[in-house]
Design a protein around this nucleic acid. Structure first.
Lengths: 192, 192
DNA sequence: TCGCTTGTCTAGCGGTGCTAGAATCGATCC
DNA sequence: GGATCGATTCTAGCACCGCTAGACAAGCGA
């Protein structure tokens, strides 16, 4: 069995290489530059090898998204755990979220803009995605206010963050007012 | 000169046909289905004709976006003019916005998701885009609250609407809570 | 060492956006 | 009315895309 185990290890390792390379290439040159040919060349295998790991390009995007979701959840939890007081926690969360989106645009796109073939807001939603939402919920749930469902409030707050993130990056919003918009969001939406 | 004028009329007419056809095709089958070949076939000309009107596919998307922006501005103004009271006006605006996004997903994508090569939030931003933002500003400006810049408040409110629109359509948010999220947004963000 | 499974590669399919150069149309002039 | 010639449109093709069939080679168990 040792031979088979070694093969499985090598396969898993190569799969990680594919995902990491796709992410790297996407962050460097955008997802449009992530073609199966270029990706194959970078991992130093031929194209068909990609298809022995993933059904297609969409699944590769999905894999990057899952990795990103786990990372984002960790980042959000780290940011909130450092903050004292509810206002500070919510502000830190919002900051961390927009920071993550700005620093990892390709990952953010894989998660929320592109089609990675992932199920959202459903039972068969992958664990990392649920957990990322849970990370938001942990902090935002406590400022939802009387009689407002925490999950629903979180969805709204998240939507606002997502709107700010995408519109800013697409050049629809200028970066100047970013800080002020964020403060306003926290002060108005959260019940402190 | 009459001949030349007629030619120009015909050219302009064909250009409108291209934009209308692109929009129609995009709404029917999504932007992925809008290929230069299919588009050319539908307007009953060969591909290169498209390039005598537009620099490329991007510019065609941009043209659809501009048309959509003008339409959206009109829809928003119509919705708010029917409403009495500030709360009702803001709610009507938000409803109309999300309605427009839901009913014209391809146009909405051309405007805010895809690259139509348009400048935003700048001096050389095309008039229809400025005007669509102005339509938002007219209603939202009056509920920004003391000491809050109306434009900045509008940007934030718009971001929230955009987030709701895109996350809902991408299946990231379930349509169930839509009404409740919208009410919460209006009640919390707007100063009434 | 041999046979065979497993894995990888080469080559190619039908599609994409876009363009060079050939062909045709049509307004103008004799 | 018919020839001329410039503007317009088309045919054909480029390089690239995602994806896959079938040839080939590597490495295992016997």
């Amino acid at each position: 069995m040792s031979v088979q185990e070694r093969k499985e290890r090598e396969r898993a390792s190569r799969e990680r290489l594919i995902v990491a390379t796709a992410r790297e290439l996407a962050e460097q040159q955008g997802w449009d530059a992530v073609t199966t040919r270029r990706l194959a060349e970078r991992i130093e295998y031929s194209q068909p090898v990609l298809y022995s790991h993933f059904r297609g390009k969409r699944e590769i995007i999905g894999a990057v998204a899952l990795e990103g979701a786990a990372e984002m959840a960790a980042v959000l939890r780290a940011a909130t755990s450092d903050a004292d007081g509810r206002r500070a926690r919510v502000a830190a969360l919002a900051h961390a979220y927009l920071d993550f989106a700005e620093r990892n645009p390709a990952v953010y796109d894989a998660l929320f803009q592109l089609d990675g073939g992932l199920a959202f807001a459903q039972e068969d939603t992958p664990e990392p995605l649920k957990d990322a939402f849970a990370a938001l919920l942990e902090t935002l749930g406590e400022v939802a206010g009387e009689g407002v469902h925490p999950a629903l409030f979180t969805e709204l707050f998240w939507s606002a963050l997502h709107g700010l993130a995408t519109l800013t990056r697409a050049g629809r919003l200028l970066p100047e007012g970013a800080e002020e918009r964020l403060d306003l969001l926290v002060d108005r939406l959260a019940v402190l």
